[in-house]
Design a binder for these strands. Sequence first.
DNA 1: TTGTAAGCGTTATCAC
DNA 2: GTGATAACGCTTACAA
Lengths: 335, 335
Amino acid sequence: MKKNISIKEIAELSGVSIATVSRVINNNGRFSEETKKKVLKVIDETGYQLDYSAKTFRMKKSFSIGILVPDITNFFFSNLVEKIEEILFNQGYTTIICNTARDIDKERTYLNILEGKMIDGLIIISGADQFSYKSLNPNKHIPYVCIDREPKDNNNIFISSDHYQGAYEATKKLISNGSLKPAIVMHKNYSSSAKERLRGFIKALENSQLTYLENESILHLPSDKIQAKKFIINFLSQSTIDSLFVINDNLALDIISYLKATEISIPEDIQIIGFDDIPACKYVTPQLTTIRQDADTIANTAVNSLLNLVNGTSNFNKKKKLVPVKLILRDSTLQ
Amino acid sequence: MKKNISIKEIAELSGVSIATVSRVINNNGRFSEETKKKVLKVIDETGYQLDYSAKTFRMKKSFSIGILVPDITNFFFSNLVEKIEEILFNQGYTTIICNTARDIDKERTYLNILEGKMIDGLIIISGADQFSYKSLNPNKHIPYVCIDREPKDNNNIFISSDHYQGAYEATKKLISNGSLKPAIVMHKNYSSSAKERLRGFIKALENSQLTYLENESILHLPSDKIQAKKFIINFLSQSTIDSLFVINDNLALDIISYLKATEISIPEDIQIIGFDDIPACKYVTPQLTTIRQDADTIANTAVNSLLNLVNGTSNFNKKKKLVPVKLILRDSTLQ
DNA sequence: TTGTAAGCGTTATCAC
DNA sequence: GTGATAACGCTTACAA
């Protein structure tokens, strides 16, 4: 196999030095219009392609951005990633998507690899714990922004849906629809967004003179689905809870399917509101009322903030950026 | 900013040559147990990290694999990508996921970028047309495998679910359940997998002495959802079609939701079978009977074949690999 | 405006 | 077993 044609050959073929060729290619420095033409002609004829690996190596810059995402099969995440990827692509950046499978070791490994690959920036999506990026090399740090996950050193940029607002509105809606005893359903682990949603839920109760009861107003569903089903059916038949604000749509849809086997009907006996607005919301019966996150705005904000950081363009970035959410009314709530 | 610590420092600090350090790091060539310990200790203490960009540059090998995927928000694809990514990760490869958004230009651009990045191999998932990879440099070609998309030069590797078998079984099931007039529902564009599914559908009709009617047995749904809804309702109320084999679950779920507004009931009036087995199948009412694709096997086969190609391990690879699918019975079919 | 040459961090070849 | 050293393709002072 013939070796790749390099800048050196181009230089020889066009009778100039490699430095000049490099200047022409990158359109930087000075060169005459004539040499430019000459060089470009040879490049065109030979089908020369830049060796990015050499360029990256030399410049310590790769024009690629890493994304850490906990679970790419989750619609909210894949939707977000798709949008981010598209924006970055249009700005000339490649996106390296890393599925961490919520595994902290895998996350660490990826971080190291990305660092070794001279990644220019990093977008961290969600995850249970606060995010702290410690490079093995304390002098090196890749600029990053977090989405829905609080950075540990808190002068880093953090973009998030207004989970508090969403939860507040959802709960208020349940109450104004007549619910006297709403409960929130969550998993065991509290991500920063889950915490905010809980806070919004509690605030809505308070503002409506309802009391938040540690043992009744919050349900922690087991992650095993069989157990979760037993648990929720059991709980609902023994309590006077009459509406559920569920931490995300996937879980809400699970709950709806669990309740199909029972006498409990939605929304008459129990109203349900989810979070995210995944496509499946519209397919279930009853269709799921939910809080829609604005993935477009989140993606745009994240990329802009990150590229500002990477290029040092603007250094007056707000540290925390809250993106409004929207209540989408469907059939799992009254009215 | 202090410069990165390199193999050279490690060499000095441990009193050996850089060549020896390199051998230890890569565990290749000979070195004594003693020097190994010495070097490893220094590496550990200093927190030295390999510079992949230098390694890639030097070796013309990046230990990363590109994936071209048409739409990462589609569950079948994201599920596949997630599995592929996991397998590759465990083999020491990074995965660069490229969402082509079914855009042929974007695909071309990505291909060029990936080539410049010294990608070791390529996995191409689905897409409407046959895939043909032409490098700008005719002497260079990155090894690749296709999933659900036929490669143009047909001695390339091609992995696919047995769409023919799936469609055949689905249709046979509809017929054995009493359907006298099944129809297949598809989009306008025929991917290689869609073609196979159509072939299986037609074969099942033939084998059951049913006739395939060009104007009745096949429905091409408009991509606009409003129009699609009108179209399907109109069609079903005017024809004697009594079962539908739908080209994929997303479309089948759409159809189920369209029919909710009508008198037509599923499965009594119309039986429906989808394809893929996405999670939402279990959430709808009635739950959707479907053909499950075996994403695990597809992912494993694709990665193994590709890595064999990349490493030149085994050169007796079957060119086309068919992965069996499975009928999952739920409530959108009788019995 | 252009050329010379150093240097990025690694691997690989060869000699010892 | 180990060490010198060339080489990979590019960018970028610095010189001319």
